[in-house]
Write a protein that binds this DNA or RNA. Structure first.
Lengths: 137, 137
DNA sequence: TTTACAAATCGTAATCATTACGATATAATA
DNA sequence: TATTATATCGTAATGATTACGATTTGTAAA
């Protein structure tokens, strides 16, 4: 998802596109991977001195609710990234830089068949490791 | 894994098999699914009045380190279960009761091929929903 | 069985991520 | 530009987890 798409969603749902919100979106638009609240805060502090924790967390949760961001629990911390709007897929996640690589393989159809009578609401398939770039450094 | 196996591992690594530790292991041996530190504490308080948070968390982390328990981040909280020692598989996890059902399908071989040059350390494949038993209640 | 000591536990405080809230400021629009 | 609902600030509260000095307890050797 890009900036314009995200701002459109916000306005569509009656939320204001404030300067801080746009800056947060811009951060994620360029991140290309998962980021924590702390990452976002550190970046936002360089743009808006004295910005509140509340603003960061409130907006992260808002973005998650309206489908602008997607989230995953990693090392006891929530991580956020721009929502993928292309076809269903999963991610390799680099433990060093948080960047992701798409993984198109997903066995959920087969799995669902083996879980008759179970109500399936969601699933997570994540691969963890170190990306080629971080292996060099 | 069963009690005896777990106790064997503890002693093998030079840790003491105390009464509290055995009771924690017994709890997990009968749990058949994921449990949080709070669950464990609530159970242990019925057996040992005034048991410390420290004891619960220290031992949970110890069990994780030595491979007696496996752990997953869920809803911002660590969840623990007895380590599966049978062949490689994944889990359906019931959001209500925490119990799991084995899922034997895993596409990691294929996935690894599509990630040449990426160092793969680990992966997680979890299916979330409600088990047949909890759907009735 | 007793002794000795490393390891385990207790009691409690500290830390870290996250959420909450009243007061104030601001974006949207009329 | 005036209005008003929404967003933000400043800060306190919460909840999970970790930390640590003092005390107790398994374990194994004497």
């Amino acid at each position: 998802m890009n900036m314009n798409e995200a701002i459109r969603i916000l306005k569509e749902k009656g939320y204001k596109a404030t300067g801080r919100r746009k800056d947060m979106l811009e951060y994620f638009a360029h991140a290309d991977g998962y980021r924590t609240a702390k990452h976002v805060l550190q970046h936002m502090e360089t743009l808006h001195e004295g910005i509140s924790f509340d603003t960061i967390y409130r907006n992260l949760n808002l973005y998650d609710e309206v489908g602008i961001l997607e989230t995953t629990d990693l090392d006891g911390e929530k991580h956020f990234r721009m929502k993928c709007t292309t076809s269903h897929h999963h991610h390799f996640i680099c433990r060093d830089c948080g960047k992701t690589k798409d993984v198109d393989i997903c066995p959920m159809e087969e799995v669902a068949q083996s879980l008759a009578n179970y109500r399936i609401d969601d699933h997570k398939f994540e691969i963890y490791g170190v990306c080629p770039t971080c292996q060099i450094g």
